[in-house]
Design a protein around this nucleic acid. Structure first.
Length: 480
RNA sequence: GCUCCCUUCGUCUAGCGGUCCAGGACGCCGCCCUCUCAAGGCGGAAACACGAGUUCGAUUCUCGUAGGGAGCGCCA
């Protein structure tokens, strides 16, 4: 049987790191099992809460999924477009006596819960309106729209055969008769999920473990629909991701949107790599390409306990991916970051050249873009601290010597340029640092840039000579 | 309060009864390399929550305790 998984976010905000990992695990499980492309990965938008769902949030989630390249199969489902279907199923359950109308007010239900709590029990609805053999129901109050409640089995227990947690058994007496349709007729989450997963042929439900307590309710509803012997999906509840404070990472608790990581210069494959390793391992391997994840990922090896998000390690993973990326594969993100810094219209070849030189020395693409600005912007001022440290009285003369030798070069390339710098250092019996650092400051304005040969190669002869000339007079004036 | 889940270095983890005075990685601390920043090389500190069992033998199995997480909505 082919695997079908789904990712089912509610569009009440951006896609955050925990959601991204759940999506990744679901995607991997569908795509990794049974060979490439065998399984299906469905995207479903759970927007039944019309108060909080927004189109902007839907778009934000779609954008993040696209950036991460977690492609879904087939159409995107929206629960709000399936209300007719839910209504049909609810009618059927009522007809079959598996659900009933409840006229208790919200205040009354709250009082029931309080009463249960006072007795040291779990807060529950007390079943006032539940039809029972030999029981006389109260007269429905006039002018009150009822909610529909599901008649949960009164005894027995429900077992979840969870792929990551193992078997979980919950007594049905822990469960109460949950509302499956609100007074205004709209269906609720626990109900829609069941109908959807059934209709969409979902074989594996992979979701956060904040849902484990809902699962028995959902299983009971599903059994009411398909019978005790009907097919149930396989569940896999993945643990939460905790913030540095040990609290669950959530939108209102320190979690930021996935796209924020793009802004900070992370590569999507690096973020995915970090996320896949958070709670899962394949021996000692730390760095995974997308292909390697697909090859090795196994949902059953996912850790049972929550894990803490570590920004430092993410940064390292990103750096590793930067190092191993082909320069041309970095062009897209580099262009995006440069654009944010006001640099547009640079051609691919140039960006590839820059990426090739910078990728080994940056932790993020954002840093790469920032550190490459000197290529596009002429030097308008020299960093005072750097000048103070590296520009001495003899410096203008040294730079002038380098400048003249460079001007005389037949071929302009990094190797030849750095040979010139070395020669000048040797001729004047000073260390490389005495020449290279001033040159660096002269052509970039600051003390940090790629190696001198790469820096000059990137700049080109004309630009290098122009900047050196400017620096010679500038530094001479400074020290004169 | 009740229910469920979890527990190896600060963090992510390997370990699936003896191979473990516990391995890797991030971070941290030294040293080396060096034209800056990185990278790289070498070395170091750092953990099986606790208590009972089971067993010839427990990090590994069972049960308690403690700690942590989640849930208990006409939210998803």
């Amino acid at each position: 049987m082919s695997v079908v998984t789904r990712f089912a976010p509610s569009p009440t905000g951006y896609l955050h790191i925990g959601g991204a990992r759940t999506a990744l695990y679901s995607w991997l499980h569908a795509k990794a099992s049974g060979g490439p492309g065998d399984g299906r990965f469905v995207l479903r938008i759970e927007d039944t809460d019309r108060e909080r769902s927004t189109d902007e949030a839907v778009q934000a989630i779609l954008d993040a999924m696209a950036w991460l390249d977690l492609e879904h199969d087939g159409e995107i489902y929206y629960q709000t477009r399936r209300f007719d279907r839910y209504a049909d199923v609810i009618d059927r359950l009522i007809d079959e006596g598996k659900a009933y109308r409840c006229y208790s007010s919200a205040e009354e239900v709250e009082a029931m819960r309080e009463a249960a709590r006072a007795k040291g029990e779990k807060p529950k609805y007390d079943g006032t309106w539940r039809p029972m053999p030999g029981k006389t129901l109260p007269e429905p109050p006039a002018g009150v729209d009822p909610v529909i409640r599901f008649a949960t089995p009164l005894d027995g227990h429900t077992v979840i055969h969870d792929l990551v947690k193992g078997d979980i058994t919950i007594s049905n007496t822990e469960l109460d008769d949950l509302v499956i349709a609100r007074a205004d007729g709209t269906p609720t989450y626990n109900f829609c999920v069941v109908v959807d997963d059934m209709d969409m042929g979902i074989t594996h439900v992979i979701r956060g473990d904040d849902h484990v307590n809902n699962t028995p309710r959902q299983i009971n509803i599903l059994k009411a629909l398909v019978g005790d012997d009907g097919d149930l999906p396989v569940y896999a509840h993945v643990p939460m991701i905790l913030g540095p404070d040990g609290k669950r990472l959530s939108k209102r608790h320190g979690a930021v949107g996935v796209m924020r990581y793009r802004e900070e210069g992370y590569l999507p494959e690096a973020l995915l790599n970090y996320l896949v390793r958070l709670g899962w391992a394949h021996g000692d391997q730390e760095i995974f390409t997308r292909e390697q994840m697909l090859e090795h990922f196994d949902i059953e090896n996912v850790q049972g306990g929550a894990s803490t998000f570590d920004p430092d390690k993410l940064l390292w993973v990103n750096q590793e991916h930067l190092k191993m990326a082909a320069p041309q594969d970095l062009v897209g993100e580099l262009r995006w970051h440069l654009a944010r810094l006001g640099i547009d219209g640079v051609d691919d070849a140039r960006l590839t050249e820059i990426a090739a030189i910078q990728k080994g020395r940056c932790k993020t693409v954002r840093e790469m873009a920032e550190q490459s600005l000197f290529v596009f912007q002429s030097v308008t001022e020299y960093e005072p601290k750097a000048v103070k440290k590296h520009i001495k009285t003899a410096t203008p003369d040294l730079i002038a010597q380098v400048r003249d030798s460079l001007a005389a070069l037949d071929d302009w390339n990094g190797e030849a340029a750095s040979a010139v710098v070395k020669q000048v250092a040797t001729d004047n019996e000073v260390g490389m640092g005495k020449v290279a650092q001033p040159i660096r400051i002269a052509v970039t304005g600051g003390p940090v840039s790629p190696s001198i040969d790469d820096t000059l190669a990137l700049l080109g002869r004309e630009e290098t000579l122009t900047r050196l000339d400017a620096a010679v007079s500038e530094f001479a004036a400074l020290k004169g």
